[in-house]
C-alpha cells in the first residue's frame, strides 16, 4: 500500500554521549517512523566526545541508511547537550527540525508523528514531548525552583524531544547570538509553543558521568542567573539590607556617643553589624561577577561551539 507521505523535509538532530548500547535501536526506530511518513529527511547525530563505541555503532549501520542522509558532527571536546544540539540545528536544512535530547526512547515511536502533527495542525511552532513522571530528584528540585522564580512566567519541565519549525529557529537566532539554554529561549521566543505529556514506558536508569554531572550543575546555575529573578531580588535585598545596617550602625554610634556614653561591648555589636553589611556587599559582588562572566560568554566569544569534524556517513 502506498501511503501519502509528507512533502515537508524534516531534519532529526540526535544527541549522542556514550550511547553505544542504545544508539542502534534508537536510530532503527527513528528511521522506521521517518521513512514511513516523509519523502525526504536527514538525520544528524551530534557526538559529544563519546568515550565508548557510539560513533562506530552509528557507522556500522551505514547499510541501513539507504533512503536517507546521516551525518555525524563530532564536537571538538565535551561541550554539553545545549551547545552540541545548537551545532546540530545550525547544520540542519529541514523545514521542520526534531531535537532528540536523548536516545533513550521511553515512549512509543508513534509519539514522534503525534508531535509533528500537533505542530502542523494546531499551528504550534514548537511542540515538546515531556514525560509525566520525573524520577531524578535533582531535576525535580531544579524545575520547581526555576518555575517559581522564572522571568516572563515561563514553566519548564524535563523534555525528551521536540519539534521546531524553521520559522521558530530563525526567530530564536534573531533574538540571541548564542543560546545558553534552549528550553528557556524557546519558551520565550514569542511564538506559539505547546507540550505533549506521555507516560514513560521504561524507567531511565542513572548513568554516572562526572563530566555530565558537573556540566549539569553549571548549566543549572547559569540558567537560574539568566532566566530567573532570584539573583536580582537577592542583590536588592542585600544592598538595602547593608544600607540599612550601616544607617543603623551610624544611629547607634550617635546614641552611644551623645546618649549612654559607655563602651566595650557596644563595639563588639557594632563590628558584627559591619561584618553583616560587608558580607552582603561581597555576595553582591560575586553575583555581579557571575553576570559579567555570562555576558562575556554570550557577547565576546567568536565561536559558539568548537567542532572537530562533520562527516556524512557513506553507504
Amino acid at each position: 500500500m502506498i501511503r501519502d507521505r509528507e512533502k515537508n523535509f524534516v531534519s532529526a538532530i540526535v544527541y549522542v554521549r556514550n550511547n553505544q548500547e542504545q544508539i542502534k535501536g534508537f536510530l532503527a526506530k527513528l528511521m522506521g517512523v521517518l521513512s514511513e511518513n516523509f519523502e525526504k529527511y536527514e538525520i544528524i547525530c551530534v557526538d559529544d566526545q563519546s568515550q565508548d563505541g557510539s560513533v562506530r555503532a552509528i557507522k556500522d549501520m551505514s547499510n541501513d541508511f539507504d533512503s536517507t542522509v546521516v551525518s555525524i558532527i563530532s564536537m571538538g571536546y565535551y561541550q554539553g547537550r545545549e551547545l552540541s544540539m545548537n551545532a546540530g540545528v545550525d547544520l540542519s536544512i529541514g523545514d521542520f527540525v526534531f531535537e532528540f535530547d536523548s536516545v533513550i526512547m521511553d515512549y512509543d515511536p508513534s509519539l514522534i508523528m503525534q508531535v509533528y502533527r500537533h505542530s502542523l495542525k494546531e499551528g504550534f511552532d514548537i511542540v515538546s514531548a515531556a514525560p509525566k513522571r520525573v524520577n531524578r530528584r535533582s531535576a525535580r528540585i531544579f524545575y520547581s525552583f526555576f518555575n517559581k522564580f522564572a522571568k516572563y512566567h515561563m514553566v519548564l519541565r524535563p523534555e525528551t524531544f521536540r519539534i521546531l519549525s524553521r520559522r521558530s529557529i530563525n526567530r530564536v537566532h534573531s533574538l540571541m547570538v548564542s543560546i545558553p539554554y534552549r528550553k528557556a529561549v524557546y519558551a520565550r521566543c514569542g511564538l506559539r509553543v505547546d507540550t505533549i505529556q506521555y507516560m514513560p514506558t521504561i524507567a531511565r536508569h542513572k548513568v554516572r558521568d562526572r563530566a555530565v554531572a558537573s556540566y549539569k550543575s553549571g548549566l543549572a546555575m547559569d540558567t537560574i542567573v539568566l532566566f530567573t529573578d532570584i539573583p536580582g531580588w537577592f542583590v536588592n535585598i542585600m544592598i538595602f539590607g547593608s544600607l540599612f545596617a550601616i544607617v543603623f550602625f551610624a544611629c547607634y554610634m550617635l546614641y552611644v556617643v551623645y546618649g549612654a556614653g559607655q563602651g566595650i561591648r557596644l563595639w563588639m555589636v557594632a563590628s558584627l553589624i559591619v561584618s553583616i553589611a560587608l558580607c552582603g556587599l561581597f555576595t553582591c559582588t560575586a553575583i555581579i561577577i557571575k553576570y559579567l562572566s555570562l555576558i562575556e560568554g554570550l557577547v565576546f566569544k567568536r565561536q559558539k561551539y568548537v567542532i572537530e569534524s562533520i562527516e556524512k556517513i557513506a553507504k
Binding site: 523535509f9 519523502e39 525526504k40 536527514e42 542522509v69 536544512i93 529541514g94 523545514d95 524553521r166
Partner: peptide, 12 residues
C-alpha cells in the same frame, strides 16, 4: 537525485 537535499540547503 539529491535535489531535495541540495535545494533545501541553498534555500536555507
Amino acid at each position: 537525485t539529491a535535489w531535495e537535499y541540495m535545494s533545501h540547503m541553498a534555500r536555507k
